[in-house]
Design a protein around this nucleic acid. Structure first.
Lengths: 210, 210
DNA sequence: TTAGCCAAAATTGGCGCCAATTTATGGTAA
DNA sequence: TTACCATAAATTGGCGCCAATTTTGGCTAA
């Protein structure tokens, strides 16, 4: 007798509805401010009512959607103050471990980072906004992982989601995208040179975007 | 016709079950590692099954309890690595805004902090461990609020909960409690003297506890 | 006496129904 | 014509039941 689980025909059902909704919020499919009706979500993601409600509750906990009792849930719109404050938190955390990043980076790591930065550059020309967004995420994740503090990496990825409801739209102009690209390479150069101060500077400008 | 809601005999039912369980975890009533059976919680807090499950799901999201599919939920026990990493995050955040704290602190704020520190001292002698814990929380909350970054204050209170499942037991010895008390006053003195560097130093030692 | 297996009890977790509240609609009176 | 109210439709959210899985207890055989 095999103890293998029966498994429905499609194994891809393993992903949670929460992630699906989250993804649609981040890619801007579900616009900031719009109301999320349970019936619609139920049909859109082919899932049951309780699943939808659990997902909405989770997203409300993460403050990605806002809950108004007896009215429903709508996509959260962070105001300017919150966005600034969250950026400032990121600056503190990411510059705070800059010296660790520099210390831990092997030549192999630097090589990998260059590859990820190039991938970002390529996506500017050839990719969709979502692919660009994901390439950016991958670069930053790899970079930050060098600090050795796993909890910090998790925390930053978590609060990065809070910054903007539709992070795909974070780069308003082509000029800003290319500036981001340059900053990526600047960060790598700073790491390669072992210059933590330069890295901190590049990170700060990159996050504050000015 | 009055449109007042009927309201059950006890209005105190306004609080969420999540907070009740959270409180019992933090005060150590629900010990780290112990299993949280839905039936028990249902009876203990006089609430329904769905309420219990929602609360457990929320606490699992906050990583205060761990969920094992088809097995249940048990109070999370952070290992040494995680505890250290989280402490390091707190050091980065709280020392990072030390200069802001110093800059924004009015003499009235300093007075309030002295009062809260004294309250902590009083609770060492007269209070229960829980009261001591809460006095400590109040002091740190007031201090950190001076940085002006509301999001950061919320984030720190949130991750502080993750540090230890039973934070009441964080002070193992009487000597350590009194050391904490001295550090509190040290922080206030640094703020009063406008010495951000001294404040950073005191905060770092206080969080790392060594 | 001990190891392994089978059955029963307990626990988790998915799903749907129905009441309560809110929003939309249409009709009526000023 | 417009403002207001009452009725109807739609949506949210609470609650309980039952299936699936796991654990426990006891029995049998080596």
């Amino acid at each position: 007798m095999n103890k293998l689980k029966p498994r429905g025909e499609n194994d891809a059902t393993a992903v949670d509805v929460t992630d699906l909704i989250l993804n649609d919020i981040q890619t801007g499919v579900l616009a900031p401010g719009s109301w999320l009706k349970q019936i619609d979500l139920e049909r859109r993601y082919q899932c049951t009512r309780p699943e939808v409600r659990r997902a909405l509750d989770r997203l409300a906990q993460r403050r990605l959607v806002e809950h108004v009792p007896n009215r429903g849930y709508h996509v959260f719109e962070p105001d300017g103050r919150q966005a600034t404050e969250i950026s400032e938190i990121r600056v503190l955390l990411e510059t705070g471990v800059a010296d660790k990043v520099v210390a831990n980076a092997s030549s192999l790591d630097i090589q990998a980072l260059r590859s990820l930065a190039s991938r970002f550059d390529r996506m500017i020309l050839e990719g969709t906004p979502i692919q660009l967004y994901e390439a950016n995420l991958a670069f930053h994740h790899r970079l930050l992982s060098l600090c050795g503090n796993e909890e910090l990496v998790n925390l930053v990825t978590e609060i990065r989601q809070r910054t903007s409801s539709a992070p795909v739209a974070q780069w308003k102009t082509r000029a800003r995208i290319e500036q981001s690209s340059r900053e990526h390479h600047e960060m790598i150069d700073a790491i390669a040179a072992g210059d933590a101060a330069a890295l901190r500077d590049a990170i700060t400008r990159h996050i504050r975007q000015n």
